[in-house]
Amino acid sequence: MDLMTTTELVPTARLVGTTMVIEVQGEIDLHNSPDLRTEILHLLNKHKPKSLVLNLAKVPYMDSSAAAVLVEAIRIIRPKGGKIYLAGLQPRVKGLLEVARLGTIFTIVKDEAEALSK
């Protein structure tokens, strides 16, 4: 089921069973991370998925304010026994997660298909 989104940072979102798949695009820093936070938290609170797949293949750069949004999402998902899958990480995004020591907290997968097969 396709879901309505309200920011160009999140061009698509959909539900596949109890898993929500959110596509994110663009460079994300303190300038626009509040918009990303609002959108993701709205989708999670409205549809209450068990697990979340964030497709970051179109995100060439993010800073710690964007990483904080991911941390906030995992704080919602994990208590329900769900997981957050990060798909399609570009090198700079992967580097940020490593230096912020967040690389092991999320499940990092190659793409959406791999996440949905788990």
Binding site: D63, S65, A67, V71, R101
Partner: peptide
């Protein structure tokens, strides 16, 4: 802080590590 799930300090930790 050293807890990646605790809000705050992520940016400063990046500076210290890099």
């Amino acid at each position: 802080n050293n807890d990646p799930l605790t809000p705050g300090g992520l940016g400063l930790n990046c500076l210290r590590r890099l």
